[in-house]
């Protein structure tokens, strides 16, 4: 369990993390979302004491991280997979880290095998590809079977096999009763993996809820996509209180406030043709964008056709 209590980090006049309070529970995967610069990494760094909070506290299983008995066995952190001394082999890198809590060769070999790096473990880390480096970072995080895992963008650079593996692994770790805090920019990935979400923007918590509630409460809700050659006739018939229609292209529109069977019945009642009738669930991405559009710090602009 991770408990954040009014956690704040200021760099000079700039506030990176602004009084975050949250409890990250064991047994589930908590997704940590937010735009670039929202304070995700800074928060994770404060949990393991890399950054000192300006005020507030971060507790890991009830203790300050710096006071834990065997830090590596308490928290496994993958914050920056490139933070490896390139001149050292992967195996020796893990041996050196493991030595701090008395972990030796056997466990290092087990972990190397489980992340699939045994064959390249003798090679200097600087020769590793992005994906291999990511696997090494994951190996380091898992080395001492920690109760708490902090993973900042763990799928970054992994191939499809690797992503699937990480997905299963995170599920196993959570099912095992561990606390898993995971940040990712990949919304589809997050939607597949996370049980719970904490969304931050400009250093503050924007949402802290189960992923299901998050999507439903975002206002996106469910919609039905209708494709019909008679769209022009059908649309007015569907209108009503609490019903919104959105047209993206001719002959295709989105209906909110009516279910698919209702729409089908209305169409058949008027002998109108329907080629497609698809209920859709708002995606995490849509919900997320809606929530964070006001708190994006580094927004790109695109020229829109007038």
């Amino acid at each position: 369990m991770i408990e954040l209590e009014r956690l704040t980090k200021k760099y000079g006049a700039k506030t990176a993390v602004d009084g975050i309070s949250a409890t990250i529970k064991p047994g589930i995967i908590t997704g940590f979302l937010g735009p670039n610069g929202a304070g995700k990494s800074t928060t994770m760094r404060m949990i393991v004491g890399l950054d000192r909070p300006t005020s507030g506290t971060a507790l890991v299983n009830g203790n300050r991280y710096a006071a834990t008995r065997a830090p590596l066995a308490e928290v496994g952190a993958l914050l920056d997979a490139k933070a490896v001394d390139g001149g050292r082999s992967a195996r020796n890198h893990l041996l050196a880290l493991g030595a701090t809590v008395g972990i030796g060769k056997r466990r290092v070999e087990d972990v190397l095998a489980s992340v699939g790096l045994t064959d390249v473990a003798h090679r200097p880390a600087k020769s590793f590809s992005l994906g291999m480096g990511q696997r090494l970072g994951i190996a380091a995080a898992l080395l001492a079977e920690p109760d708490v895992l902090l993973l900042d963008e763990p799928v970054n650079g992994l191939d499809i096999d690797g992503i699937q593996w990480i997905r299963e692994l995170l599920g196993e770790l959570a099912a095992d009763g561990r606390t898993v805090l995971l940040s990712s920019h990949l919304m589809t990935e997050m939607q597949l993996v996370a049980d719970h979400l904490i969304v931050i923007g400009q250093g503050r918590i924007l949402a802290d809820s189960s992923i299901q509630d998050f999507i439903e409460e975002s206002g996106g809700g469910s919609a039905v996509v209708v494709v019909s050659p008679d769209a022009g006739l059908l649309a007015p018939l569907l209108a009503g209180d609490g019903v919104t229609l959105t047209t993206r292209e001719p002959g295709r529109f989105e209906v909110r406030g009516r279910t698919a069977p209702e729409i089908g019945d209305i169409a058949s009642g008027h002998s109108l043709r329907i080629h497609e009738l698809t209920p859709t669930q708002a995606s995490l991405e849509t919900a997320y964008l809606q929530l964070t559009q006001d708190s994006v710090e580094y927004a790109g602009t695109t020229r829109k056709a007038a």
Binding site: R69, A70, P71, L72, A73, D85, R88, N92, L95, A96, L97, A99, T100, V101, G102, I103, R106, R107, D110, V111, A113, S114, V115, G116, L142, A144, E145, W165, E168, L169, E172, L173, D176
Partner: peptide, 27 residues
Amino acid sequence: MTIALERPVSTHAQSLARGIHSEWIKV
């Protein structure tokens, strides 16, 4: 490819001596 949980990992308290061992491996 799963994380081997079958073989329990025994860990010890982090201490200065273990820190020196770690740095010695690095050197």
